Simulated assay, not measured.
Amino acid sequence: MRVGDIDISYDDQGDGLPVVLVHGHPFDRSMWAPQVARLAPRHRVITADLRGFGETTVVPGKTPLGVFADDLFGLLDRLGVERAVWCGLSMGGQIVMEAHRARPERVRGLILADTFPEAETPAGRAARHAAAERVLREGMGPYADEVLDKMISPTNVRALPDVAAHVLRMMRGTSPEGAAAAWRGRAERPDYLDSLSRATVPALVVVGEEDKFTPVDVARRMHATIPGSTLAVIPGAAHLPNLERPAEFTDAVERFLATVA
């Protein structure tokens, strides 16, 4: 679907409470397949490939979190969805926090999974710019091989070969230009703790117990910041609990959506 200056590839399944699932970096909307299968019989589930990822238009340069959020608002406008529950993992969670900060009236609920709410540090900015230059120089393969056992736990790399293959396929299949643009945009990430502290909608914070990128302490800090929020820690999972432990992750999401609906 044409939204602004790009063509967005998306799926819109089911009926009922609208739920937008926002993928992380460097993935695509296929990362939500287990959740779509479980949720679509009771909810309207919308997944989209973000700008620069999957089958959506690649725009080289820099893509700030606000641009990703605006793309999704534009898609929801085209689909006739005024308010939705927004669920995002990792970078997707930061896009959800940006959407809530910018247009809280469009957000009916927040699900923040394995994500980080605070402003980027100088060291983090440098690392993101370096990562962008690296994948433009080397392609996605070396990066994907290096981070696989951080995206999912080393145990799950061995125990869940189909999941490991899916995660590798998404990472290797991502456009280096799209990944680099997102890293450059994330290097400018603001602090979302203030807007989260003023949230008036239901919120769920989810984290894999073994996550090294956004550890449990980060999730607990978000949970303490967001009024009335719920925290779910998923055992046996690292940064992608929705794929490593899909039943447990989706159980937590379904319980939360029942309270929103």
Rank of each mutant, 00 (worst) to 15 (best):
Y192Q: 00
A144Q: 03
P227N: 10
G178T: 02
E244Q: 07
L148S: 02
A219S: 14
L204C: 12
G92Y: 02
L257K: 13
V81H: 05
G208D: 09
V206L: 15
L240S: 11
D251Y: 05
R125P: 01
A132L: 08
W32G: 07
D191I: 03
R220S: 03
R221P: 02
H25Q: 14
R108T: 08
N156M: 09
S90L: 00
E248G: 02
L204V: 00
L204E: 05
G173N: 07
L204F: 08
T230K: 14
V20P: 08
D77A: 10
G109W: 00
M222L: 07
D145W: 03
R108I: 03
P60F: 04
F213Y: 11
P18E: 01
A180T: 00
P142L: 01
E55F: 04
P60G: 04
A33M: 04
R44W: 13
K212F: 00
E105G: 11
R198K: 15
R83N: 06
V201D: 11
V81M: 04
A199E: 10
S9V: 14
T63D: 06
D217V: 11
E82A: 14
F116W: 15
M1E: 09
P142E: 09
T121E: 03
M31T: 13
V67K: 14
S90D: 13
E210D: 11
S197C: 06
P227G: 09
A247S: 11
D7N: 11
P34V: 01
K62P: 08
T259G: 15
A247L: 14
P215G: 03
V157Y: 10
V22D: 13
E138S: 12
C87W: 05
M171D: 00
A126V: 06
G139T: 12
E254N: 09
A180L: 04
G80P: 12
L160K: 15
T214N: 09
E105H: 12
T214K: 00
P235V: 07
H100R: 05
G208E: 04
P18C: 00
V96P: 11
M222F: 01
T174R: 00
A48L: 15
A203N: 06
L193Y: 13
V3I: 15
A164M: 07
I234H: 06
A102M: 07
L231V: 11
F27S: 08
R172Y: 08
A132W: 03
D114S: 10
L50N: 15
V85N: 04
E118S: 13
G228I: 08
A123S: 08
Y10N: 00
V85S: 07
H223C: 04
N156I: 00
P26G: 05
A113F: 03
T225A: 15
R101P: 06
L204D: 01
L89A: 15
A182P: 08
E146D: 11
V19K: 09
V45N: 03
V206T: 12
D162V: 14
P154A: 11
R128N: 07
R38V: 12
A126E: 14
H25N: 15
M91P: 01
Q94C: 11
A237S: 13
A131T: 10
P122C: 01
